[in-house]
């Protein structure tokens, strides 16, 4: 995959004398790839997006798109010359223009006929044929979202940036729209960077995810990598619920409060382990066993069950299949079904 966007050591201070909002940000996105910047609010992800779009100027670092330098110490290509499309959180549709006019807004260099054809084509791509004449306020939230995507896709930008694109949609609409928009982007073959604070959104939408915290990227990887093999405590906790175990490691195994468990990599001495609830299961406590706990709560959710187990004064979460027979008060043992993940100690 050829590299399309590369961000190098990007730093931005807001205000200019304040602490960096984005610091030494480095990542690259390949052609046609969907990349997500995921992090809590205030982590600098939206600022990063605005830097790439050209709305803000970095204090240090460089941005290259398609091999061409867009921003560094001496260069600043203005937003309108970058060939980068942006879909805003509030969609930012022009209320005085109808859907077709909105989509055609960026098609400056085309002839009238070409323009018309391109508008038709893009509107069909996002599945809005028949809505061309509607003004934005006459469209539903999901339809507005699609007009915004179409408007951004129409000029065929090299790169599309999505700023929390689904947060304005209600929960029901969000999942279906997400899948449809992903299909549209993949069909158009557009390289995409999205920022979001919703881990489910990032995991299901992106090819690769960069988890951000305090202006820095803590880990980059495929959704599976960052979910199953978080590098730091922050990544482990931000991507979903997890059980943290203070343990004593010795090579590929460690002694933990729940017993001896296998590790995903070699470690020595005191380490912090992460075990996702679905990587644990329950079994009946063996009489005289040292690691027995008791079931504190059981939440039946249809396709699975979440147990809360009290062991040595700590609570552990366990997701199991819906046939697990234990009830609150039962004495159980926790059993890992995957190796525990060793977290880096440096990152607090």
């Amino acid at each position: 995959m050829r590299e399309l966007l590369s961000v190098n050591d990007l730093t931005k201070r807001l205000p200019a004398t304040g602490p960096p909002v984005v610091s030494a940000l480095t990542f690259s996105v390949g052609e046609g790839e969907i990349f997500a910047l995921l992090g809590p609010s205030g982590c600098g992800k939206t600022t990063s997006l605005r830097l790439i779009a050209g709305f803000e100027r970095p204090n240090a670092g460089a941005i290259r798109i398609g091999g061409q330098c867009m921003a560094d110490a001496t260069t600043h290509v203005p937003a309108e010359k970058r060939g980068v499309g942006v879909v805003f959180q509030d969609f930012a549709l022009f209320p005085h223009l109808n859907a077709a006019e909105n989509v055609g807004f960026g098609l400056l260099s085309l002839s009238r006929a070409e323009r018309k054809r391109r508008i038709e084509e893009t509107i069909r791509l996002v599945g809005l044929a028949g809505f061309e004449e509607r003004k934005p306020h006459e469209l539903s939230g999901g339809q507005q979202q699609r007009v915004a995507i179409a408007r951004t896709l129409a000029p065929k930008p090299d790169l599309i940036l999505l700023d929390e694109p689904f947060s304005n949609l209600d929960a029901l609409l969000r999942q279906t729209t997400r899948q449809e928009i992903r299909d549209v982007l993949k069909e158009a073959g557009t390289t995409t960077v999205m920022v979001t604070h919703d881990q489910e959104e990032a995991l299901s939408f992106a090819d690769r995810v960069g988890v951000m915290r305090n202006g820095r990227i803590e880990q980059i990887g495929t959704p599976e990598e960052v979910y199953y093999r978080p590098r730091t405590l922050f990544v482990a906790q931000f991507l979903g619920r997890t059980n943290l175990l203070l343990s004593d490691a010795d090579g590929m195994e460690a002694d933990t409060p729940v017993g001896r468990v296998a590790l995903n990599r070699k470690a020595q001495g005191p380490v912090l382990l992460s075990l996702r609830p679905e990587h644990l299961t329950l079994k009946e406590a063996t009489p005289g066993g040292t690691c027995a706990g008791s079931v504190l709560a059981r939440a039946f959710k249809g396709h699975d069950i979440t147990f809360t187990v009290l062991l040595d004064g700590s609570e552990y979460l366990v997701h199991t299949h819906n046939g697990m027979p234990f009830q609150p008060g039962d004495s159980v043992e926790l059993e890992p079904i995957e190796p525990a993940v060793v977290l880096e100690t440096s990152a607090g």
Partner: peptide
């Protein structure tokens, strides 16, 4: 964001203001 959208669609700051 409307003006910024116009910028990304190829308008200079002044034209983005005037059109959006």
């Amino acid at each position: 964001s409307m003006e910024e959208a116009a910028r990304t669609l190829g308008r200079s700051p002044l034209r983005a203001f005037l059109e959006a």
